[in-house]
Nucleic acid binder design. Structure first.
Lengths: 252, 252
DNA sequence: GCCCAGCATTGATGTGGGTCAAAGCGTCCA
DNA sequence: TGGACGCTTTGACCCACATCAATGCTGGGC
């Protein structure tokens, strides 16, 4: 039966590095990491990759692990190589706003400020490459092309944040959910094969806290989209049956 | 009578440069601009200030002028020296989200991407220093300390955007308005004297579009705050009568 | 000084999505 | 194999805020 379909584990097919990386196998087994950095920071010299190898440290975290808390001293920079991380801010009374999900290839703590502005928590089991802030700063300093890439990256992050503000402030529940699904599909597409099967490893509560809704509204909206055959809700994700309809809802 | 009080024009008292800048008077009269850059980019050499003088161009825009449109080719970098600019994104059906107000000292277009991610429009008459993107990029390239400052600046912007996401997604109308007033007060404080008199040069519609509310809700909320003696609504602004109460509402 | 246009306020009413409550339904473990 | 726990779905109801509709204020042009 149809709903028993499985979703490709996104990270499983994403390591272009195993095909393309000319740098060879690192001593710490962090090929993924080097590739990710490569993809974000632009062409690096082999010697620079070696340097990054030495500076980085692979870490695995089970689901629900706190990578760092909002306001904590920013001691590390992370590059997610596998799994999904939620980034969020909380109000004293417990209300939570997820400001983003970090997928494989994404950086955490790149703002390089004294303290983390958000909390980061593993949604799924997560593998990261960790750099100490000091080592990363030291490495980056005096590499203008890298600084430049970093700045571009920050600009992109800001642009995404502004899109999210528009979504949070001015879109309806339907539009929010549609935009979320399409956005997630596109992001998976960037790290693997584009597919209409969109895994949703995060809980409904996470989705609600990302879209400024409640868990019930997210659930109802998905049910509604399913009833009108726009999506098919399956365990651990959705299949997009009509991206046209979703595009129309998301109303870019 | 009390409500006839006047608000200090914020830009009028903000030019610390006229007191502190050691660089002397520029040939194009853009002392403000140099000071602003100074304050954002950190200590620059006098020769660098001269360079910036040559690169920049003072421009005045009447209220409601479009400085640039969302998606337009990013040809310029602006430094606001006087007045207020609204930055916003729009949906095809006209819904609008203001993602920020630029006050004197703020930069526009610093992300240095190919296209502007938001539209920028003068709320009040505005004076800016304009750099061509090419000149700015050229100047900045090869100045690591400047790149570094720019990156820090971007990180700060991102952090503000994330705060705004929390506000838009998870705060009530009362909390939004209270946070807005306190935030604006703090920002005026940074460019002039901290005061309980907070000018609101932007329209209620602007405030509503910034907070993800309607004009009516903003108006009613201000009336409510006035009734409970938390603020005094006067022409062109508010006086904060109880910042304690506002802090409590804003619930940091 | 008057009129008009544009903004702000206020009131009456509607509704999208929140809240509260109760089932479903996997999945993990005994 | 069952049952218990955590998550999701569904239903009934409610309310904060939106919508619709006057009305009021203010400042600029004549």
């Amino acid at each position: 039966m149809d709903s028993a379909m499985t979703f490709a584990e996104p990270a499983a097919e994403t390591c272009a590095g195993e095909r393309d990386c000319k740098h060879g196998r690192g001593t710490n087994g962090c090929d993924d990491c080097k590739v990710r950095l490569f993809s974000v920071c632009g062409a690096l010299e082999p010697t620079e990759l070696d340097e990054l190898d030495r500076l980085s440290q692979v870490k695995n975290f089970p689901a629900k692990t706190m990578l760092f808390d909002q306001g904590a001293l920013a001691g590390s920079v992370f590059n997610v190589t596998e799994g999904i991380v939620r980034l969020y801010k909380s109000l004293p009374d417990g209300r939570r706003q997820i400001v983003g999900f970090a997928l494989p290839g994404d950086f955490l703590g790149l703002a390089l400020m004294d303290r983390y502005g958000v909390a980061a928590e593993a949604v799924t089991p997560v593998r990261v490459c960790r750099f100490t802030r000091a080592a990363f700063l030291n490495y980056v300093d005096g590499k203008p092309h890298l600084l430049r890439r970093l700045h571009e990256f920050a600009g992109h992050e800001l642009s995404l944040a502004q899109d999210q503000m528009l979504l949070l402030g001015r879109r309806t529940a339907d539009e929010k959910v549609a935009a979320f699904l399409l956005n997630l599909q596109a992001r998976y597409g960037r790290i693997g094969a584009m597919s209409v099967n969109v895994p949703l490893p995060m809980s409904r509560q996470d989705i609600a806290d990302y879209l400024g809704l409640t868990i019930e509204t997210v659930s109802r909206t998905l049910t509604k989209l399913a009833k009108e055959k726009t999506v098919l809700v399956v365990p651990d994700g959705v299949r997009l049956l009509s991206t046209d309809r979703l595009d129309q809802l998301a109303a870019a």
